[in-house]
Simulated assay, not measured.
Amino acid sequence: MSRIAFVFPGQGAQYVGMGKDIVEKFEIANKIFEEASEAIGYDMKKMCFEGPEEDLKKTENTQPAILTTCIAIAKVLEEKGIKADLSAGLSLGEYASLVISKGIDFKDAVALVKKRGKYMQEAVPLGVGTMAAILGMQREDLEKALEKASEFGVVEAANFNSPGQIVISGEVAGVEKACEFAKGIGAKKAVILPVSAPFHCSMLVPAGEKLALELENVIINDLEIPVIANANADYYKDKSEVIDLLVKQVSHSVLWEDSVIRMLEDGIDTFIEIGPGKSLSQFIKKISKQQEKSVAIYNVESSESVENLMVNLSN
């Protein structure tokens, strides 16, 4: 028997039209979109299906839109009898994992991530912070570049995505200097990313503090499916850890590569990336190759890919 992990993408995967085909074909997906609209007070179908892109790209809209699309698709898979043995998500995607594990009710989660997006955007004035992708460099070497660059401004590792792909975050001067130093000591590429805030670094601590107050008002239930947290690449032990780890996630590194290695070590041989884009599938492919593990990786974001998955899993 395959051991299946549901994995969910983070911000940046969004596009106008995501989820439309799924909603048209499956009533359970339509219901999720309607629940989202009710929870956040605007038409989620219109936001996801029609945009405009500028509105969809606003962090406080992006986060509930991606979460809604992911859960709508996950519910379709569950209705078809495909269940996860465990789950993990990248940044925002961790909320989708907690929803399918029954740890947080979907309506609470979608309202929560709208506020999370708002707080993350407001924590640092526009133009003060940025992020960059560093390609082709080991963690230990990058640490040297970050240490040197920190004299010019805050700069920290934000995402450990896959072997040779690390994202850094911080003040503009610090990030620019880190890119310069990283290239000087062997990075293949260092690319400033088109983002509106320096996510997953200490500059986002105020956003985490505001999020903590919101989380205190949310009912947290026992998790029915094991979920791996971004902040420590380990399983939530029980529901008492949920608030602390979600708050920590806002201003700490996302340990995605470590999380995938943990899943591989625990016998996961089938990864189903649920939601817009294919970035997690690409990361998992690189990580599993480095770990010399043979795995099946699927991406599901349309009714056609649902049908393809059903065929592949039945073979």
Rank of each mutant, 00 (worst) to 15 (best):
S2Y: 10
F8Y: 15
K20P: 09
F26N: 02
S37W: 03
M44C: 08
M44P: 02
F49W: 06
F49S: 05
G51Y: 02
D55V: 07
D55G: 02
K57I: 12
E60T: 10
P64N: 08
I73N: 06
I73A: 12
K83Y: 14
A84H: 03
D85G: 14
G103K: 02
G103P: 04
M131H: 12
M137W: 00
E140L: 09
E143W: 07
K144P: 05
K148N: 11
S150N: 10
F152E: 11
V155C: 12
N159R: 01
A182P: 04
G184M: 03
A187P: 00
C201D: 04
M203P: 00
P206S: 09
G208H: 08
L211R: 10
N217E: 15
N217S: 15
V218P: 03
I219T: 13
P226A: 12
N232L: 10
K248H: 09
K248A: 14
V250F: 13
V250G: 08
S251P: 03
H252N: 15
L255Q: 01
W256Y: 08
E257F: 07
V260W: 01
R262Q: 11
D266N: 15
G275S: 11
S279N: 09
L280G: 06
Q291H: 12
E292F: 13
I297Y: 04
N299D: 12
N299Q: 11
N299V: 15
N299W: 06
V300G: 02
E301K: 15
S302R: 04
E307Y: 06
E307L: 07
M310D: 07
